[in-house]
Amino acid sequence: MIGEILPADVCVAEAFSDRTGEPVFPGEEASVGRSVESRRREFVTARRCAREALTQLGFAPVPIPAGPGRDPVWPSGVIGSITHCAGYRGAAVAARTDLTSLGIDAEPHAPLPEGILEAVSLPAERRRLAGLALRYPAIRWDRLLFSAKESVFKAWFPLTGRMLGFDEAELSIDPFAAEFSARLRVPGDRLDGGPALTGFTGRWLVRGDLMLTAVTVHA
């Protein structure tokens, strides 16, 4: 599924359930720590997906620990992203020569819990969501906005090493092209000596009970 909204040079792997009794991969024990069993299972499955995606780039299985910001630490020359939610685990990787950064997110296709939308959105975004909901009520636009911002953060953090607040990127969703754009409301870094980063673009997909979003930044 996630491959449908990513460029062809991105390698992906995904799973829709966990394997009973699958152990933590050697070298990743510290990343999962004393987590509850459900968290351990989703971690193990998502990291397995990441290794399966890496094999498509020619890498042997390696540990993928969590860095100081809890983001995955990839082998040299690789950029990637991992996501998991109820009923889905996925990973996407690419050579750093092809992409500068990427972010993916999976969410249940269900309304956000009460009060969350106000915490993760700007007034202008909520007005646009209200219009989308009137015209296309079958899509949970509040959850899509949240997922898209998660993908934006996952693409932003490896580039800058800084956190990005939900109010620091303003999102617009295209319901026809199944795309979205995020305009940064804070200064962005320069990429490879080029112009400063001012925003991100991405794609989205809703299928059944799942909602997926992806952002890519090209080299």
Rank of each mutant, 00 (worst) to 15 (best):
P75S: 08
S76N: 04
V78Q: 00
V78Y: 04
G80K: 00
G80Q: 00
H84D: 05
C85P: 06
C85T: 15
A86R: 13
G87Y: 06
G87R: 10
G87M: 12
G90T: 01
A91H: 03
A92L: 02
A92Q: 02
V93E: 02
A95W: 11
R96P: 09
D98V: 03
G103W: 05
E107L: 04
E107R: 02
P108I: 05
P108G: 02
P108H: 01
P108M: 04
H109I: 09
H109K: 06
P113H: 10
P113I: 10
G115E: 05
G115K: 02
I116Q: 12
L117T: 03
E118I: 13
A119Y: 08
A119L: 15
A119I: 10
V120M: 09
S121L: 07
P123Q: 11
A124G: 11
E125S: 06
R126H: 11
R127V: 15
G131Q: 14
G131A: 15
G131K: 09
A133R: 10
A133D: 08
Y136Q: 14
A138Q: 15
I139E: 11
I139D: 06
R140N: 14
W141R: 01
W141V: 02
D142H: 08
D142F: 01
R143W: 08
R143F: 06
L144H: 06
L144D: 09
S147N: 12
A148L: 14
E150Y: 11
S151L: 01
V152H: 01
V152S: 04
F153Q: 01
A155G: 09
A155D: 05
W156C: 05
F157V: 13
P158T: 10
L159E: 02
L159W: 07
R162W: 03
L164Y: 06
F166K: 07
F166C: 08
E168V: 03
E170A: 15
I173G: 00
I173N: 00
D174N: 07
F176W: 05
F176I: 07
E179K: 10
F180M: 05
F180S: 03
S181H: 09
S181A: 15
A182W: 03
